[in-house]
Design a protein around this nucleic acid. Structure first.
Lengths: 106, 106
DNA sequence: TCGATACGTCTAAACGCATAGACCAATTAC
DNA sequence: GTAATTGGTCTATGCGTTTAGACGTATCGA
């Protein structure tokens, strides 16, 4: 039985695991998209574009980044692509990071 | 008396407050510096440079970023600048973000 | 005073990223 | 089939960032 698994992995693994997350969250445009999706069940690209000052290709680009980071999920329905927020995994990663930091710097 | 202050501020404030944090954490070079400083009490710039593959001006530049974000603190002693990790505030910001996300997306 | 140590800054190059116009593919309605 | 809606991609541009060489400054010992 392993004791103190977080300490074995150390904070290095936790920081590296959160790297895509930090890069995805480190832009106001992507943050705005996340905040929009937090208000509703799902949204298509044009609905997002109507609420922001960014052009649709820009939003499409950011959504791709968020999709890769696992922060949003995509459901194709007819001609529209419905995006919805799935931030649970990201929150779990952040929690692991906090635990790792507090056990090795506290 | 205000009840549920986090909910009033909403996740938008929390995300924006963490923006400098995300940008500071979103680089492997700065993460490496943080991980080094997590191991010891304090380090000067050359000690950090000796442990990494980055040039000293680059490290000095990253330290400035980390200093601005409040992630490290600087103590001038003689000719050397001792940097030490002060990540408590960052962790507190991340915790606030998690709370804000979980109350508005859970 | 002179040399050595420590480090920030100036400068520039290379790279990546954010942004959006133009174009094209897929789907639906008529 | 044609037109309209939806949205991804291609492309290009402008800007920020990462990187480091060169230089200047401050401190300390001899």
């Amino acid at each position: 039985m392993l004791k103190n698994k977080a300490k074995l992995a150390g904070p290095a693994g936790a920081f590296r695991a959160c790297l895509p997350l930090f890069q995805a969250f480190g832009d106001t445009g992507r943050q705005d998209i996340i905040l929009l999706l937090a208000e509703v069940e799902a949204m298509n690209v044009n609905q997002i574009a109507d609420r922001l000052t960014l052009a649709r290709p820009t939003i499409s680009h950011h959504l791709k980044t968020l999709l890769t980071a696992g922060i949003v999920t995509l459901e194709h329905r007819g001609t529209e692509n419905l995006y919805s927020l799935t931030i649970d995994e990201a929150v779990a990663l952040l929690k692991s990071l906090i635990v790792a930091v507090e056990t090795s710097c506290g």
